[in-house]
Simulated scan of single mutants.
Amino acid sequence: MRLQAVQVEVCVQDGSEEFTEAGSSGDEFAVSVAIDPVITTETWERWFQDWLEALQPTFSPIDAYELSLRLTDDREIQQLNQQYRQQDKPTDVLAFAALESLYPEPDELQATLPLYLGDIVISIDTAQRQAEGQQHPLNVELAWLASHGLLHLLGWDHPDEDSLTRMLKQQQDLLEIVGLHSKTR
């Protein structure tokens, strides 16, 4: 089954406090840190499309989903982590699931528009350090973190070791779907 639409909004913050944006048009973007090869919006969209196809969520009656992906730095993610999780430190990825809200969309909207899953925020600074520690390219680490965020948007959680092990295995499977490989964590 092919999903009708996965729309990914990518907003990348570089070190100068300005944003480079690329929407669903497939425009490429660059970041001040070296992402080799550059992950284009089209690539992100394809990865999320493939992942959602594999995971087969059933939340949308028209099998259309939308999410937001933001690549930022440690400073901004630390502010978000403090504001929303009361942890005053940088982290690698945050996921803000829209499906957790208590505001259901009217049936007519659900039947015509993609279902908004939520927001994924990734710190490129932390991702770079983790990529070096795992001895794999930054794009693999970014995909690893994005897949982790997506699973959270779909309701996955890891409150104990067993659920964390299942989630990490699912992330490994998702990376393999898009042709990437990570060392087992």
Rank of each mutant, 00 (worst) to 15 (best):
P61L: 06
Q7F: 07
L55R: 03
S123A: 09
Q13F: 07
W51H: 06
A98V: 05
H181E: 14
Q130L: 15
R2K: 15
D27S: 14
T43C: 03
R185E: 12
E100C: 01
E66D: 10
E76F: 14
L175V: 05
P37S: 08
L102A: 11
V31H: 15
E18H: 09
T58N: 11
D160R: 12
E45Q: 15
G26W: 07
R75G: 06
I77C: 03
L174Y: 00
Q134N: 09
L55E: 07
S101I: 02
R70W: 04
D107V: 14
D63Y: 02
R166E: 14
Q83Y: 08
L117P: 06
L52K: 01
F48L: 13
A143K: 04
Q78C: 11
P57E: 01
H136A: 05
I122F: 01
D173I: 03
L142Q: 04
G118H: 06
H158L: 01
D107H: 11
D74H: 08
E161I: 08
E141A: 01
S24D: 09
Q87E: 14
A64S: 09
T43K: 10
L94D: 00
T43F: 05
V93H: 04
Q172Y: 12
I77S: 01
A5T: 14
P90N: 05
H148D: 10
D88G: 08
I120W: 00
S147W: 03
M1L: 05
E76C: 08
D157M: 05
R46P: 02
L115F: 03
A30N: 10
D14N: 14
S24V: 14
S163H: 07
R129M: 03
L180V: 09
P37L: 09
I177W: 02
V33I: 10
V12Y: 01
L138P: 04
A111C: 04
W156N: 06
Q134I: 00
D14M: 11
L145D: 00
D74W: 02
A98Q: 13
G155Q: 05
L151F: 02
L153C: 02
R85M: 14
Q83F: 12
P57G: 03
A127W: 02
P106F: 07
G23T: 11
G26D: 05
L94E: 00
I62W: 01
T58W: 00
Y116M: 11
G155F: 07
H152N: 03
G23R: 09
F59P: 01
I77Y: 00
L117C: 07
F29P: 01
P61Q: 09
V8K: 02
V10E: 05
V10L: 15
I124S: 00
L164M: 14
A64D: 00
Q78D: 04
W156E: 11
R2G: 08
Q128H: 07
L94T: 04
L164S: 08
L154M: 05
E76I: 11
V93M: 12
P104H: 02
E45I: 13
Q49P: 00
V33E: 05
L142A: 06
G26A: 06
V178R: 03
Q79L: 06
L99T: 15
E100R: 13
R166D: 13
H158A: 14
E132A: 13
A143M: 04
Q4P: 00
S16P: 01
L67C: 04
A34L: 10
Q128Y: 04
C11L: 11
E28Y: 06
G149R: 07
S68H: 10
E108Y: 10
D88I: 12
E45G: 11
L99K: 06
